[in-house]
Each structure stands twice: as structure tokens, then as C-alpha cells.
């Protein structure tokens, strides 16, 4: 579904990604873990076309077949089915919950089935229905996270990128969000999950990568990485 080859990205004067390669197969949940500043968000923003790669390729099985995303405009990338739920939620504070969701479906031409998609999101997050008319900025952090995920789902992702969905949430809410990710996974959505909460991410992931200083230093199944001594020490806080 997604195949990244030797991706180099510079921001300002620094080379943030120094040639990373990774892949996500259809139906899989892949996790990308790493410390602060490792380049996780940079990776996702490059996939979405908000940052430009200096070199490397990004193959994606999109709506119009297999394409290279590195030259594509951000709105085309969404149209192809690669949709990101960004770090820090980034919902539209001044727009109502309803309008936030409608912006998720901005590119969709199928007005009729959009209504039933909104109902599906409401079923997943009933609070979004209750608060449909409220301004996005008045929601709590957890509710905003649900809104951000719901909004991304309305774009009908073939591949959903999630950038630190647990960030800043209470433990209970984190459980809730991971339950939803589990549900999406069971429904067959392909997911690339970026997390600092490595334990939960590795638990849910079929495939995982460790990003350190702009390089992929380890990869394997979620299980394998969770059992790896270095990962246990550095990311799971378990002394070996």
C-alpha cells in the first residue's frame, strides 16, 4: 500500500530525515516510534505533501493506481486516499463540530453517501452528534481528538496516518482512543501510527519501525520490537 524508499528531508538548515525506508501493507497497522525530535512528524508531513522531500520516493496504491506522492500537491494526496490526523489534533476551533466533520469530506463528490459516513462517525463517537453545533474550540481535549479522528475518517482514507493520538490525554481517554484504533483496524483500515506511547503502539501494531535521529534503526513485527532489549530500555522504560 505504501512504500517509502530512501527519503531525505531537510527543514531549515538541518537534514531531519537522512534516508528512511519503510512500508505498510494493505490492511496492516504499522507503528513508527521514536523520541522527541526524531523526525516522526516530519515523516508524516512529507507523506501528506506539506513538506517536500529532497530525494527519495513514496509509492502509494491510491485511488488512481500506484503513484509517487513526492511531487503531488497536498490536496491531490488526500484525494488519492492518504489522510492524516495531525499531531496536536488541529481541529478548526472557530468552526462547529458539524462543519469540522464536513471539511473532512471536503473532496468527496458523493454527497449522498457522505450522510451515512457522518452517521458512522456519530456511532463511533456519539458525543460528536450531541455537540454538533458547538464550536470545535469548546470541546475538551479528548473530544477534540475524537473530532480530529472523525474528520479524517470522513475523507475516506485508504491509509490513515495518526500522529500521536494519545498526546496530552488522560489515561482513560487514551484507552478509548486505542479501542477506536483497534476497531478501525478490525474493519480493515490501513493505519500508520506514530506514537511516543510505545507500549500501546507496539501492542496494536503488525509492523513497527524505530526512528532515531532521522534514521530507521530497528524494524520488525510489533511483538519482536516489544521484546527487543534496546526498545525495552529506551522506549518501554524496562531495565533489561
Amino acid at each position: 500500500m505504501l512504500e517509502v524508499r530512501d527519503l531525505h528531508v531537510t527543514r531549515g538548515a538541518t537534514e531531519v530525515l537522512k534516508g528512511i525506508s519503510l512500508e505498510v501493507l494493505e490492511g496492516e497497522t504499522a507503528a513508527l516510534i521514536g523520541a522527541n525530535g526524531a523526525g516522526k512528524s516530519t515523516t508524516l508531513l512529507t507523506l501528506s505533501g506539506l513538506l517536500r522531500a529532497k530525494s527519495g520516493t513514496v509509492r502509494f496504491e491510491g485511488a488512481s493506481g500506484s503513484i509517487d506522492l513526492t511531487k503531488l500537491a497536498a490536496e491531490r494526496i488526500v484525494g488519492e486516499g492518504l489522510v492524516q490526523c495531525p499531531e496536536g489534533r488541529q481541529i478548526f476551533h472557530s468552526l462547529s463540530v458539524e462543519e469540522n466533520l464536513s471539511m473532512g469530506g471536503y473532496l468527496r463528490r458523493d454527497r449522498a453517501s457522505l450522510g451515512s459516513s457522518i452517521e458512522e462517525v456519530h456511532a463511533l463517537f456519539p458525543i460528536l452528534k450531541e455537540r454538533a453545533k458547538a464550536a470545535g474550540g469548546t470541546l475538551s481535549g479528548g473530544e477534540q481528538m475524537m473530532l480530529a479522528i472523525g474528520r479524517a475518517l470522513l475523507a475516506r482514507p485508504r491509509l490513515l496516518l495518526l500522529d500521536e493520538p494519545s498526546l496530552g490525554l488522560a489515561p482513560q481517554m487514551i484507552e478509548r482512543i486505542f479501542d477506536v484504533i483497534e476497531t478501525l483496524k478490525k474493519r480493515g483500515t490501513t493505519i500508520l501510527l506514530v506514537e511516543q506511547n510505545a507500549a500501546m503502539a507496539l501492542d496494536i501494531a503488525d509492523r513497527a519501525y524505530v526512528l532515531e535521529n532521522g534514521r530507521i534503526t530497528l524494524s520488525g513485527s510489533g511483538r519482536e520490537l516489544a521484546d527487543n532489549d534496546r526498545v525495552r530500555q529506551a522506549y518501554l522504560g524496562i531495565a533489561s
Partner: peptide, 23 residues
């Protein structure tokens, strides 16, 4: 209107607007 809402979304959060496929 849809375009008007997209315009408000862009003014509210440019990055998020781009991630939603708004040109």
C-alpha cells in the same frame, strides 16, 4: 456555502485545511 466554510477553515488553521484536501 461549502467554499465559504472552506475559507473559514483555511483562516482558522491553514495546515489542517491542507490536510483535509482544501486547495
Amino acid at each position: 456555502t461549502r467554499l465559504g466554510t472552506a475559507m473559514r477553515a483555511t483562516a482558522d488553521n491553514l495546515m489542517a485545511a491542507r490536510l483535509m484536501g482544501i486547495a
